[in-house]
Design a protein around this nucleic acid. Structure first.
Length: 481
RNA sequence: GGCGGCGUACCCAAGUGGCUAAGGGAGCGGUCUGCAAAACCGCGAUUCACCGGUUCGAAUCCGGUCGCCGCCUCCA
C-alpha cells in the first residue's frame, strides 16, 4: 500500500516517496503565540499529527519539526496593549498552548524550535541571500528581491504580474519593488532587537521557517505543511528564500489543510470570528474535538457548531460502547456464538489504511471503523454469549485492528470506562463514591419495586450530569455530555 | 479582476465512469426494559444546485448558469 497525497506544488495527488530512503522529514508551520488558540489551529495540529502517526506506523523514521513563532508584530502590539513585556505575552501563551492541547493526543515533535532561539541562523541565511544577490539592505532593513527569483509564484500558481494586480497594501518606500518582502526589520525605540550586520533589528516573519527547517531537516526535505491561508505569501516566500539561498529544491511536497469556519466564515484571530479550544474543553473532552476535526477531509473547509460537536460526541460514545462490549466479552470469555456479517470485522486495519493512503481520507477511514462497530453491536445484541465461542479469533483480530486504528486516529485509545466516567470534569459535584451510594439506594428501591423512588434518584443524578443504564450485569453510570 | 475550491437526504460527510449512492447524527415505527438509557430490527435521497453535451452507461468527464467559500493583507 502506498500513500498518495495532494501536493499543492503540482496541484495533483501524487504517490509519496521519501527522498532519503526510510527517513521522512516534515516541517509544519506552528502558531504565533500571541493569543489563545482556536479550533482552526487545532485542526492543523491534529491533521499533521495524524500524518506523523501514519508515517511512523508505516515504518518510516520521521523527523517532525513544528515551530513556535515567538517574535512578531502581533506579539509586540499585544504586549503594548496589555502594558506587559513581550516575553510575558509569549510565556503566558506558550503555557496556554500546552494547557489547551495536552489532551489532544498530539505526539511530541522531534523539535519545536522557537524563532528567538534561531536569530543567528536567520542572520546567516540572510547574509547568504545578500551574497547571492537576491537580497538587498536598505536603511537598516533587508529585503528579498522577488524579481531575482524567477520561480516566484510557483506555489500559489500566480505570476508576479497577477500578484501585483491584487496588491492592496501600501508600499514600504524602502522597497525597490512592491512585491519584495522583508527579511530583517529595523527595530524602533523600545522594541526588542538583536544585533546584526544591518544594525539592531528583528527578523521578518518568513525567514524563521526557512532557517529552522533548513537547520533541522536540510534540503530538500519531504513535506512542508500548514494551513491553506499560508500558501501566499508565507510559503511562497519561504520557497524563494530557501531555494534562493541553497540553489536546491526546498520541499518536495506541500500539504495544506482547509480552514475551520464559523457561520461559513473562516475562523480568524484578527476578526474575532472564532471558537477557542479552551471554550470547547469546558463542554467536551479533547478527544471529541479531535475526532470532530477528522470527520471531514483535511482539504475541505470544516464548519464548526456546537450541534456538530454534539454529533461527534454521540459518535465517539457509540464507538466506545462497542469497544467496551468487545473488551468485556473477551475478558470474561463471554462472546457471541453467531456473527451475522463477518465482512465488516475482517481486515479492518487494511481497509482503514487503504482509506488513509488515499490522500488521508479520514471520513472513509472513520466509516470503516464504524462498520466494524456496528458489526460488534449486532453480534452482541442478536446472539447468545457463550464461553469458548468459536468466533473468539475473529473478535481478537478485530480488537487488534481497533487498537491499531485508535493509535492512528489518536482517539478510542482510552479504557472505555474512563472515557464514559472520567474524560472530563462535569458540572457535577458528585464523587465516585457518592454516585455509587445513590446507585445502591436506587437498587434497594428497585428491589422493593418502589419505581417512584428509583426514578427520583435517577432524575437527581441526571440533573447532576450523570446518566444511569440498567444492564443485565447491574447498573452503570456515564457522564452525560 | 487573478488563482484555488465547494454545492450529495432534515444536519454532517464519503463516493471522481458501471455491483442496491459509504459512515455518523437527528426523526418515525418496533424489540428489549418496571419505565428509561444503550443496543438491535425496520422506514427514509428513483436521486447527487440548475441547464445542455460526450458516452452503451455520469453524482462522477466537457460547456454554460446560479449560489457559497478561501487566498491575493497578519492568519492554521
Amino acid at each position: 500500500m502506498s500513500l498518495k497525497l495532494y501536493n499543492t506544488l503540482t496541484r495533483k495527488v501524487e504517490t509519496f516517496e521519501p527522498l532519503g530512503g526510510n527517513k521522512v522529514r516534515i516541517y509544519v508551520c506552528g502558531v504565533t503565540i500571541y493569543d489563545r488558540c482556536h479550533l482552526g489551529h487545532a485542526r492543523a495540529l491534529v491533521i499533521f499529527d495524524l500524518l506523523y502517526r501514519f508515517l511512523k506506523d508505516k515504518g518510516y523514521e520521521v523527523d517532525f519539526v513544528r515551530n513556535f513563532t515567538d517574535i512578531d508584530d502581533k506579539i509586540l502590539s499585544r504586549a503594548q496593549e496589555e502594558k506587559v513585556s513581550w516575553k510575558e505575552v509569549v510565556q503566558r501563551n506558550l503555557h496556554a498552548f500546552q494547557e489547551d492541547f495536552k489532551d489532544f493526543g498530539l505526539l511530541t515533535p522531534m523539535v519545536e524550535p522557537r524563532a528567538t532561539e534561531h536569530i543567528a541562523d536567520m542572520i546567516h541565511l540572510i547574509e547568504l541571500l545578500m551574497q547571492k544577490g537576491v537580497a538587498y539592505a536598505s536603511d537598516g532593513e533587508v529585503f528579498f528581491s522577488v524579481k531575482k527569483f524567477p520561480a516566484y509564484g510557483k506555489l500559489s500558481g500566480q505570476t508576479l504580474e497577477e500578484l501585483r494586480s491584487g496588491t492592496r497594501v501600501e508600499v514600504n518606500p524602502k522597497k525597490k519593488d512592491p512585491e519584495d518582502f522583508v527579511l530583517w526589520k529595523a527595530s524602533r525605540e523600545g522594541e526588542p532587537s538583536w544585533p546584526s550586520p544591518w544594525g539592531p533589528g528583528r527578523p521578518g516573519w518568513h525567514i524563521e521557517c526557512s532557517a529552522m527547517s533548513l537547520k533541522y531537516l536540510g534540503s530538500p526535505f519531504d513535506i512542508h505543511g500548514g494551513g491553506t491561508d499560508l500558501i501566499f505569501p508565507h510559503h511562497e516566500n519561504e520557497i524563494a528564500q530557501s531555494e534562493g539561498a541553497t540553489g536546491k529544491l526546498f520541499s518536495q511536497f506541500w500539504i495544506h489543510n482547509g480552514m475551520v469556519t464559523l457561520q461559513s466564515e473562516k475562523m480568524s484571530k484578527s476578526t474575532g470570528n472564532l471558537t477557542r479550544v479552551q471554550e470547547i474543553l469546558k463542554k467536551y473532552p479533547a478527544e471529541v474535538a479531535r475526532f470532530f476535526l477528522l470527520t471531514a477531509h483535511y482539504r475541505s473547509p470544516l464548519e464548526f457548531s456546537w450541534e456538530l460537536l454534539e454529533q461527534a460526541e454521540k459518535a465517539v460514545s457509540r464507538g466506545y460502547t462497542a469497544l467496551k462490549s468487545l473488551r468485556e466479552g473477551l475478558e470474561e470469555d463471554q462472546l457471541p456464538d453467531k456473527i451475522q456479517d463477518l465482512l465488516p470485522l475482517q481486515n479492518i486495519w487494511q481497509r482503514f489504511e487503504g482509506a488513509l493512503d488515499n490522500d488521508l481520507n479520514t471520513p472513509v477511514a472513520i466509516a470503516v471503523f464504524f462498520e466494524a462497530v456496528k458489526a460488534i453491536h449486532q453480534a452482541f445484541a442478536n446472539s447468545k454469549r457463550i464461553s469458548h465461542s468459536s468466533h473468539q479469533p475473529i473478535f481478537e483480530e478485530a480488537q487488534k485492528g481497533f487498537r491499531k486504528i485508535a493509535s492512528i486516529l489518536g482517539a478510542f485509545e482510552k479504557d472505555p470506562n474512563d472515557y464514559f466516567q472520567k474524560s472530563r470534569l462535569t458540572q457535577t459535584s458528585l464523587t465516585d463514591s457518592e454516585i455509587h451510594a445513590q446507585i445502591r439506594l436506587r437498587e434497594e428501591a428497585r428491589s422493593r419495586k418502589d419505581w417512584k423512588q428509583a426514578d427520583i434518584i435517577r432524575q437527581k443524578l441526571y440533573d447532576e450530569g450523570i446518566v444511569l443504564e440498567d444492564t443485565p450485569k447491574g447498573t452503570i453510570w456515564k457522564i452525560n455530555f
